[in-house]
Amino acid sequence: MARFSLRPIVAHAVLLSGAFLMIYPFFWMWRASTQAPGEIFGTLQDAPPMLASIADNYARALFDSPLPNFMLNGVIMTGGILLSQILTTVTCAYALAKFDFRGRRLIFAIVLVSLSVPAQATALPIFIVLAKFGMLDTYTGVMVPYLTSGFAIFLFHQFIRSFPDEILLAARLDGMSEVEIVIRIILPAMMPAIAAFSIFSITFHWNDLYWPMIVIRSIDLAPPTLGLLFFRGQEGGDSFGPLMACATLVTAPLILLFLAAQRRFVQGVTMTGVK
């Protein structure tokens, strides 16, 4: 009898302590961002009121540092990449799923191969070409390797394949052009898949450090990840509170997006598991 009542308690204890370890770094980051210099490590006895420290740290992060600029760069790069990816992949996936044409198998093979080529492996040749055309240290330079996505094509292809052919046929009989069909029928029907992919893409590129570190030299063009490293390198130990405020602000958008759309988020990120 005792074991039956004990088991859920043990389960909860394990789950809760794990959850604590997961949450603690976020909690600590937030707490550190709300405290005056020195206070977090217990060296300051007369702590100024917390609200004053919050105002001070976040004001310095938002107005005295280039953080807003970093965030804007991140939005432009992430948004540009996503837009280009959707524009190039939806039509391609539609063509692969619903038409038979010369080159179809070749394209499909290339899509499958591209799934297993990590982005870091192609960095050097793209870097050399960008340097040739003077496109290093530009927004375009950051976006070039990611203008299309084999993963998106594969995913969208799986999704469109099950779309009923009768509807497409009827639309054609009504005199709709293929472009109209894509815009007015395929695109709306694909929204769940597009949303899931968008979350995957936004998460990846907002968090990407590898490629921006290679292409971006000037602090004005840095995305949030690279900007944080600039900021940490420039400021001394006394700007610990503002640094943590910056870290909080950089992490916040994705966390908020996640809390707002948990289901889609989990779908979007775990889709990498079924690709």
Binding site: N207, P224, L228, T251, F265
Partner: peptide, 11 residues
């Protein structure tokens, strides 16, 4: 799932 979505550079 929170750590998965977080920005690893900041964390």
């Amino acid at each position: 799932f929170l750590p998965v979505t977080s920005t690893l550079t900041a964390m």
